[in-house]
Write a protein that binds this DNA or RNA. Structure first.
Length: 130
DNA sequence: ATAATGACATGTT
DNA sequence: TAACATGCCATTA
């Protein structure tokens, strides 16, 4: 298992109940802004215990396709159970439920200052919305 | 070694 | 708003 995958797992485990994040967001926290697909790959093949269902794509859609229909429906069910309402098209308002890592946690990630700034600029705890 | 394939993201149309 | 195109990068073939 690569260090990247280990980070993915660590971070996914910190996502609180009832919240959701995107693949790209996790990738960013891991210091690999372009590795969203690898996050998905990790969640799929890693059998360790983690709340994988709290990770969706950036438009708030469950993006499991093809022959993983069972998992797709399971994810919808699990999210619904945590209070996130999901429509028949497997989409929901991610901004309403998006989890933002606290700034002090971001600073513990051992990333370059440049990347930290990038993270805070994109996912700030006090965004425009409220 | 080269090319195709994804639980993705983002900018253009 | 939604479809399309391009960029990404580890894994597979």
């Amino acid at each position: 298992m690569s260090p990247f995958q280990q980070k993915v797992i660590e971070i996914v485990r910190t996502i609180p109940y009832g919240k959701a994040t995107s693949y790209g967001q996790i990738a960013l926290y891991c210091g690999m802004p372009r590795a969203a697909r690898e996050v998905g790959w990790t969640l799929r093949q890693s059998k360790v215990d983690m709340p994988w269902w709290r990770v969706v794509n950036n438009s708030g859609r469950i993006s499991i396709d093809g022959n993983m229909e069972a998992d797709k429906n399971l994810q919808k069910k699990l999210l619904s159970a945590e209070g996130i309402e999901i429509g028949d098209d497997f989409t929901f308002d991610i901004e309403k439920y998006r989890w933002i890592m606290p700034e002090e946690e971001v600073k513990k990630l051992q990333l370059s200052e440049e990347q930290i700034n990038k993270i805070l600029a994109k996912y700030s705890q006090t965004p425009l919305n409220f």
